[in-house]
Computed example of a mutant assay.
Amino acid sequence: MPDTGTLAGDLEQYARQTLDDLSGPQGKLLLRTLVAVRQGPESEAELPPALLRRYDELQALLDRAAARGEHPPTVQDVVDLIVAPMYTGLLLDGTPGDEDTARRLVDRIHRLSQTS
């Protein structure tokens, strides 16, 4: 997880890393795997360990921001407002977006957290 010294910087770097992961050759494979896991016979089970680690790492990033006196969103907010749109883009358009997409999604979550 990135540590740029600011929540906005960390989230933008996180979004870019996610974008890179999904844009690479393994992106569509990852999407298919996630769908298969969540739709399979054990779909009520917890997320795969790799995804649980990702959530834990993201929580650590948000906890670091809180310790600096910033007001971070929840992990679920980051997933809903940054990660999910990238997966949706990959699913519907064949691409999770570009760096402008990452910046726009981080700006959106930042604006929403300022109004809460």
Rank of each mutant, 00 (worst) to 15 (best):
Q39M: 10
E42K: 12
L31K: 12
R54N: 10
P48M: 02
Y55Q: 00
V35A: 04
P48K: 12
P48E: 04
L29D: 11
P49W: 02
S43R: 14
V35P: 01
R53D: 11
K28L: 06
L51W: 14
P49Q: 12
E42S: 03
V37R: 05
A50H: 09
P41V: 09
L47V: 04
L51E: 08
Y55G: 02
E44G: 14
Q39I: 03
K28W: 05
A36C: 04
L34P: 11
L31R: 15
R32A: 15
L51G: 04
Y55E: 05
A36P: 02
E42M: 00
P41W: 14
V35Q: 00
Q39E: 07
R53K: 14
E57D: 12
R32H: 14
E42C: 04
V37Y: 09
P49T: 07
P49C: 08
D56C: 02
A45V: 07
L51P: 04
L47K: 09
L30F: 08
D56E: 05
P41N: 11
L31F: 15
R54I: 04
A45P: 02
G40H: 12
G27R: 06
Q39R: 14
L47T: 03
R53V: 11
A36T: 05
V35W: 12
A36H: 11
E44I: 01
E44D: 02
L51Q: 05
T33N: 08
D56S: 05
P48C: 07
Y55R: 14
Q39G: 07
G40N: 12
L34A: 13
K28V: 05
K28N: 11
R32I: 08
E46R: 14
R54C: 03
Y55P: 02
Q39L: 08
S43C: 08
E44M: 02
G40P: 08
L30T: 03
L34Q: 13
L47N: 08
D56M: 01
R38H: 10
V37Q: 03
L31E: 09
Y55V: 09
V37M: 03
S43W: 10
R38F: 12
L30Y: 05
G40V: 15
P48L: 10
P49N: 07
T33I: 01
L47Q: 13
L31C: 05
L34C: 12
A45I: 04
T33V: 00
P49F: 05
Q39F: 00
Q39H: 10
L29V: 12
V37T: 04
P41Y: 07
L52Q: 15
K28T: 04
P49V: 06
P41L: 15
A50K: 07
E44T: 07
A45K: 07
T33K: 02
L29I: 06
